[in-house]
């Protein structure tokens, strides 16, 4: 059985016929070929799949494509404008907050949502807020630094 879904992804209207069991991350990666959103686990813990739905961070591996019907989705591909990185992306680059890059899209999307909710988090808050994102490379040290730096630039 397939169902029709339609949503806005990174500002563009998209639609498709998908199996009802299709996850949002599958729709993004397989139907739309937006492969920046990654899958790192199957228990909704690693956070590599985080995207924004209507501006809020959501794990797209635990969301059905059907649930995103009619929403506005932003993925990592939708952040940079005209080749200019989003301040969070720029902070990650400046502070070497990524190594292999696999968890990075989810980290960046979560971090942006974190600052939306808590504009000037202290270190302990940042570390606590990253509970839903696992990085195996960086030891988190530079991710924390990057988020602190981005908070300053983003004018919280």
């Amino acid at each position: 059985m397939t169902i029709a879904v339609a949503m806005k992804v990174n500002g563009k209207a998209v639609s498709g016929q998908v199996e009802a069991r299709t996850l949002l991350v599958q729709f993004l990666r397989e139907n739309l070929r937006l492969t920046g959103t990654h899958v790192g686990c199957d228990t909704s813990q690693c956070g590599a799949c985080v995207v924004h739905i209507n501006g809020k961070a959501v794990k797209s591996c635990t969301t059905l494509a059907a649930q995103a019907d009619g929403t506005e989705v932003t993925t990592i591909e939708g952040l940079a404008r005209d080749g200019k990185l989003h301040p969070m992306q720029e902070a990650f680059r400046e502070h070497h907050a990524l190594q292999c890059g696999f968890c990075t899209p989810g980290m960046v999307m979560s971090a942006i949502d974190m600052l939306r909710r808590i504009p000037r988090p202290d270190e302990a808050t940042i570390r606590h807020e990253l509970e839903g994102n696992i990085c195996r490379c960086t030891g988190y040290h530079n991710i924390v630094k990057a988020i602190q730096a981005a908070a300053k630039v983003m004018g919280g």
């Binding site: 990666r29 920046g36 591909e77 940079a80 990185l85 680059r93 890059g101 990075t104």
Partner: peptide
């Protein structure tokens, strides 16, 4: 030196095998 590889990873343009 800031990394040459970062732009593609930060913009979702890395190419991992499953991509």
């Amino acid at each position: 030196v800031r990394r040459k590889e970062d732009f593609r990873f930060l913009t979702g343009q890395g190419t991992y095998t499953d991509d």
